[in-house]
Amino acid sequence: KCTICLSMLEDGEDVRRLPCMHLFHQLCVDQWLAMSKKCPICR
């Protein structure tokens, strides 16, 4: 589950894993990281 948009991560979707190993939709986390340089879970 992407904790930014709260939707399930589905096969075939573009996802991004951060160095902390948390996984998000690529678009969601890219937009998040443009505003904050910290993982939305770890922050």
Rank of each mutant, 00 (worst) to 15 (best):
L23N: 07
V15D: 01
M21C: 09
D30C: 04
C28S: 03
R43L: 15
L33N: 07
H25P: 04
L18S: 03
R43I: 12
P19Q: 06
L9P: 03
I41S: 14
S7Y: 10
I4G: 03
L6C: 14
H25G: 01
D30I: 06
V29E: 05
L23R: 12
L18F: 10
R17S: 10
C42R: 04
K1F: 11
L33T: 10
E10Y: 05
S36M: 07
D11A: 06
R43M: 15
E13I: 04
R16H: 10
E13D: 14
A34T: 07
E13W: 03
L9H: 04
D30F: 05
D30A: 10
L18P: 04
M21T: 11
T3W: 11
L27A: 15
K1Y: 14
G12S: 08
C42W: 01
C2I: 00
C5P: 01
S7H: 14
L23M: 10
K38S: 13
Q26L: 07
C39L: 02
L9V: 12
F24D: 04
S7I: 06
K38Y: 04
L18H: 00
C5G: 00
E10D: 13
M21W: 05
C5T: 00
D30R: 06
R16N: 07
P19W: 01
K37V: 07
P19G: 11
Q26F: 04
M35H: 06
G12F: 05
I4N: 05
Q31F: 03
I41G: 13
M35K: 15
S36Q: 14
E10C: 05
R17M: 09
C39M: 04
H22W: 00
L18M: 11
H22E: 01
D14N: 13
S7G: 13
C2T: 01
P40S: 02
C20P: 00
P40R: 03
A34R: 09
Q26C: 07
K37A: 10
I41N: 08
L23C: 07
C2V: 00
C39P: 08
E13K: 14
Q31D: 05
L27M: 13
D11H: 12
E13Q: 10
E10Q: 10
S36A: 12
M8C: 12
H22P: 01
K1L: 06
I4E: 04
Q26H: 10
C2E: 00
E13L: 03
L9I: 11
L6K: 15
C39Y: 02
D30H: 03
P19N: 06
P40T: 03
P19H: 05
K1R: 07
M8D: 14
Q31M: 07
S36E: 15
S7D: 06
D30E: 13
L6S: 15
R17L: 08
A34V: 08
L27K: 15
E10N: 12
L18C: 02
R16Y: 07
G12I: 04
L6F: 14
L23K: 15
M21A: 14
E10W: 05
C20W: 00
L18T: 03
F24P: 02
R17I: 02
R43P: 15
V15E: 07
L6R: 13
C42G: 03
S36G: 15
L33Q: 10
L33A: 08
G12D: 12
L6E: 15
C39K: 05
M21I: 02
K37S: 10
C39H: 06
M35D: 13
L18I: 03
V29Q: 03
M8Q: 14
M21G: 14
L23Q: 13
D14I: 08
W32K: 14
A34L: 10
D14V: 08
C2F: 05
M35V: 10
C2A: 00
A34W: 04
H22C: 10
M8A: 14
T3V: 05
C2K: 03
L23H: 12
M35Q: 14
R43V: 15
L9A: 03
T3C: 09
P19C: 05
H22Y: 00
G12Q: 07
E13P: 03
T3H: 15
D11C: 06
L18A: 03
C20T: 01
E10T: 14
E13C: 10
M21V: 03
D11T: 08
C39A: 02
P19R: 05
Q26A: 13
T3K: 07
L9D: 09
D14E: 10
P40F: 03
A34C: 05
L6A: 13
V29Y: 07
I41P: 02
M35F: 07
I4W: 07
